[in-house]
Design a protein around this nucleic acid. Structure first.
Lengths: 216, 216
DNA sequence: CGGGTCATGCTAACACTGTCAACATGGTCG
DNA sequence: CGACCATGTTGACAGTGTTAGCATGACCCG
């Protein structure tokens, strides 16, 4: 079967007998998540088959199926952070526009790549086992923190209210993303989708910068 | 095997040969979701085994595995709506307290029953196939709508801003719930959890009742 | 009252999946 | 050159969703 000549033959990148099978597997697993729309659609055996490798070969690179989806999960989180960083760079220094760009990129990513977004926030056994560091390990979370700090510096957020503000803001944006892709069918037109996003961002910014009726 | 006497014997409810096997299956499937913490842990064969029935018997009541989890999903949504309705009744007529009670009940349910909450908002093939009616089919959503209307009536929300306000508010609460049970490990103490919930509700109420810096 | 029909169960089987144990083999390096 | 180790492979096992075909009890109608 293996028609491998003795020559090293570095030109061909299509044999994984000492090409990186690991990344190849993550690639197709990622594609499975994208096409299928979730983590249940990433199936180890099919991925191995597509890579052209035996099912058990995957176990040289991943300790379990769950380990593979964890790899995809981190890749998905990276892509999310990357697109957010890109949009933020285009916001010009203004803190309000920065926060809005952050949130907009977040939910637009979810809508554009629901499969990736779902596995990015899917529970993996790996997470519950080893103590995954808190949210500050996420570059997206840190970007949010910096944006809020900038709003304080700009005098738009009262310093006393600043602590613990990340979670409410993140919640609003994350919730919108999740509801749009997994909630009840809202059948939003492109226009109404935009309105929902901007409306949510309005609520967040107002809620964070102003004072309101705080009777519990 | 079937030691069924000819007498109707209505007293015994423990045989499912003409007891309702369907509800029995939903019961143990629901328990699977609760114990396992998600929809992947609800497995048809094991449920049938536990009910004391052959695997294929389930197919007399559910067209597929997915159909079973859809049943559990609706049960979960009902329970969520029920606990919300309970808490709202205790809020006394005040519209602000009502909205807060609504949100609090929502995320407290998610934290108390993560398994049920996850399947309540998990994508099922059944949903994508038949056109499940919009969110107004959900009693919880309608309760939110009424609470917002009450805030308008109380003069706390400008009438012009009222339309489309359900989604942002729901997003904030839903996002918090999801992040608490599936997001990065925040290791919140009971006290900090309370603060996160109330802080989010503060943001929502302020954002909804006040006016803010709306540069897009 | 008796016989047929239909809902509801059962068994056997298929195609898959994740996972493990045991074996093979190529490249690397002392 | 020869041993080692990373990386593959084959074969098997348990468990899953799902289908086809068969059995039988309960109920209804003539």
């Amino acid at each position: 079967m293996h028609l491998m000549t003795t020559q090293p033959d570095a030109s061909r990148r299509h044999r994984y007998h000492h090409g990186d099978c690991r990344n190849a597997l993550i690639d197709v697993a990622t594609q499975q998540a994208i096409n299928g729309g979730g983590r249940d659609h990433i199936v180890l055996r099919e991925a191995a088959r597509e890579v052209g490798v035996s099912p058990t070969a995957a176990y040289r690179h991943f300790s379990s199926h769950d380990d593979l989806v964890t790899a995809v999960k981190h890749r998905a989180l990276d892509r999310l952070a990357a697109t957010m960083a890109l949009k933020v760079r285009r916001a010009g220094g203004d803190p309000v526009r920065t926060l809005r760009a952050l949130g907009r990129a977040y939910v637009e990513f979810a809508v554009a790549e629901p499969g990736l977004f779902r596995v990015a926030f899917s529970r993996t056994d790996h997470d519950v086992a080893v103590d995954t560091g808190g949210p500050s390990d996420s570059e997206a979370y840190n970007a949010l923190s910096r944006a809020l700090d900038a709003l304080v510096d700009a005098g738009l957020i009262d310093t006393g209210r600043r602590p613990g503000l990340e979670l409410p803001v993140w919640s609003a944006v994350h919730g919108l993303a999740v509801l749009l892709i997994d909630g009840p069918p809202l059948e939003l037109s492109q226009r109404r989708l935009k309105l929902a996003i901007e409306g949510t961002l309005d609520m967040v910014l107002t809620g964070v910068t102003r004072d309101g009726p705080n009777e519990s």
